[in-house]
């Protein structure tokens, strides 16, 4: 299949908008990095050489301490193992990930209380939170959860929005009226209260939270798609398809939806940033994912209660700012690339 030259043009235009394009590259790298977070941030070693054998604990099985000649049966502490191998000097070695901590692990000291400030020597590059968990580790895993959450939420919202919205716009009439009323009622339900009520009864899991959010989030996309469908439907190419004898589903799926793609694509980045903000604020308020899930909202909350530990707030606010600015730049560039007539200002 050949890519529509109009699409190629849009992609070219997107690439020519530097700010958005670089943000896109950065965000993509961030997402990719977060997908391999286990290899970057982990208290399990990347590679262990013991005797003649090599181990890869990051993506492998759990190795009890006995495997490496230690005297315990629980999971090996690779940081200690690394030190020990070094002291022994017998050619065994341990290669740790850049951040040798797990997002859940409390790195406690005997003489001090967390939070610990950033320290390169201890490899807590951004310090620890108030229970001694590495902040960088929690930022990265928290990012993965937030972005995964947003993308999945986007899939739900857009899926529902596109199906109901295009049906409303295409069929119109009673169906349209019915859903218009539903939407009016729906959008008056105080979303936050519902979440608070639900999460006071059950602790919502990842998927539950997405379903609850999608329960309210589908409205925006539905309304947008309804409007574009309504517009597309009255265009002549649709009439031409009808004149050929095309069925309604053929017209909707083969003609109308492909012609609304640019609207859908334009909305996607803003939906992603909306999703990140939503999960972060819910976590901040304590109605989001159950602790100890790594979460930016929870870090933000810690920052608020531990103002003197500036590194907590600085890290999470910095991470959020970078992410949201990148997403916004992407959104802006996508919008400009897809619909230059409407948004370009001529100088």
């Amino acid at each position: 299949m050949r890519l529509n030259p109009l699409t190629i043009k849009k992609i070219k235009r997107f690439r020519s908008i530097r700010r958005g394009y670089y943000s896109f590259i950065i965000l993509t790298l961030m997402i990719l990095a977060s997908l391999f977070a286990e290899a970057l941030v982990n208290n399990r070693a990347l590679v262990v050489r013991h005797g003649e054998r090599y181990y890869c604990p990051v993506y492998g099985r759990m190795n009890p301490g006995k495997v490496f000649g230690l005297d315990y049966d629980y999971e090996t502490n690779y940081r200690q193992l690394q030190k020990r191998f070094k002291e022994e000097g017998r050619g065994n070695w341990v290669l740790m990930p850049p951040v040798p901590y797990n997002a859940y692990e409390n790195d406690l000291r005997e003489d001090r209380f967390p939070p610990f400030p950033p320290s390169f020597a201890e490899k807590h590059y951004l310090g620890t939170d108030n229970v001694g968990r590495d902040i960088l580790a929690r930022l990265i895993y928290g990012f993965r959860i937030a972005i995964g959450f947003s993308l999945l939420l986007l899939l739900f919202d857009f899926g529902i929005g596109i199906s109901i919205g295009s049906a409303m716009g295409y069929f119109g009439g009673k169906f349209d009226l019915f859903f218009q009323r539903i939407i009016e009622i729906w959008s008056n339900v105080p979303f936050l209260y519902v979440i608070i009520i639900i999460s006071s009864v059950v602790v919502p899991g990842f998927i539950t939270l997405i379903i609850i959010m999608a329960f309210f989030g589908w409205i925006g996309m539905t309304w947008t798609i309804r409007t574009v469908t309504y517009k597309e439907k009255s265009r002549e190419y649709v009439l031409a398809a009808k004149a050929l004898g095309a069925s309604d589903s053929r017209i909707v799926f083969r003609h109308i939806i492909p012609n609304t793609i640019s609207v859908i694509v334009t909305y996607a980045p803003f939906a992603v940033s909306g999703g990140i903000v939503a999960i972060t604020s819910l976590d901040y308020l304590g109605f989001g994912l159950a602790p100890p899930t790594p979460s930016w909202g929870e870090l933000l909350q810690q920052a608020w209660t531990h103002m003197d530990s500036w590194w907590i707030g600085a890290s999470v606010i910095g991470a959020m700012t970078i992410t949201l600015i990148a997403v916004t730049f992407i959104g802006e560039a996508v919008r400009e690339a897809f619909d230059p007539k409407m948004y370009t200002t001529y100088e």
Partner: peptide, 26 residues
């Protein structure tokens, strides 16, 4: 039917091949 506006009456997202094959598929 042949339409008045040859810009509007062809789906811009379809190739000419798709446009002409569509009646046969339908």
């Amino acid at each position: 039917m042949v339409f008045q506006d040859p810009f509007e009456s062809l789906d811009a997202r379809q190739t000419v091949g798709d446009i002409l094959e569509e009646p046969l598929i339908i």
